Amino acid sequence: MRALAWGAVVAITLGLAGPALAQERPDDPPYEQDLMRLSEILGALHYLRPLCGAPDGTLWRDEMQALIEAEVQDEGRRRRFVERFNQGYRGYSSVYRRCTQAAQAALDRYVEEGSALIRNVTTRYNR
């Protein structure tokens, strides 16, 4: 797995992972669920960070694109990554219209979880 360029924020913690999208395939790498979760976190960050005043622009969408380019070779898997990103984005855009204490707390947790996922995957599976 290629290390992602994360700037200062490399992390997040989302509570949206749904069992319906967590279907493993026999040819998936052993870190697939971690990458799916990371995709979801990136989607949430893409919505929440600008909502809470961060000047991120397309940073998180660009990171998602870099993840897809590094990890995905087939269309079905690409669609699963994009679905998880969109799930993370929609999950928060349907609830938050302004930055609240709860939204900021979610961002803080997501930063921790995202960092842990990246550390785990790159430590265990980096070639």
Rank of each mutant, 00 (worst) to 15 (best):
Val95Arg: 14
Arg97Val: 09
Glu63Ser: 11
Val95Met: 07
Ala20Glu: 13
Gln33Cys: 05
His46Asp: 14
Ile118Phe: 10
Glu83Ala: 13
Gln101Lys: 11
Ala105Cys: 08
Arg25Ser: 09
Asp62Thr: 08
Cys99His: 02
Arg97Met: 08
Gly7Thr: 05
Thr58Lys: 13
Cys99Asn: 05
Ala8Gln: 10
Asp28Met: 11
Val10Ala: 13
Glu75Asn: 10
Pro30Leu: 04
Leu16Pro: 02
Arg84Ala: 12
Leu107Asp: 01
Ile68Met: 05
Tyr31Val: 01
Asn86Trp: 05
Gln101Ser: 11
Ile68Lys: 04
Tyr110Pro: 03
Gly76Ser: 10
Ala106Asn: 02
Ala11Met: 08
Leu59Pro: 00
Gly114Ala: 03
Arg84Leu: 15
Asp27Glu: 14
Thr123Ala: 14
Leu48Gln: 00
Arg25Gly: 04
Leu107Val: 07
Ala66Met: 06
Val95Trp: 06
Glu69Gln: 13
Ala5His: 13
Thr13Met: 06
Tyr110Trp: 09
Glu71Ile: 06
Pro19Ser: 12
Trp60Leu: 01
Thr58Leu: 10
Met36Phe: 12
Glu24Leu: 15
Gln73Cys: 04
Leu51Met: 06
Gln73Pro: 02
Ala3Lys: 13
Val95His: 09
Val121Gly: 10
Leu117Arg: 03
Ala5Arg: 13
Glu32Pro: 00
Glu24Phe: 08
Tyr92Arg: 04
Glu113Thr: 12
Gln23Lys: 14
Arg124Cys: 07
Gln65Gly: 04
Arg98Tyr: 08
Val72Phe: 05
Glu71Leu: 08
Arg49Cys: 08
Glu83Asn: 13
Arg90Tyr: 09
Arg61Leu: 12
Ala106Trp: 00
Ser93His: 11
Leu117Val: 14
Glu32Thr: 14
Ala5Lys: 11
Asp108His: 11
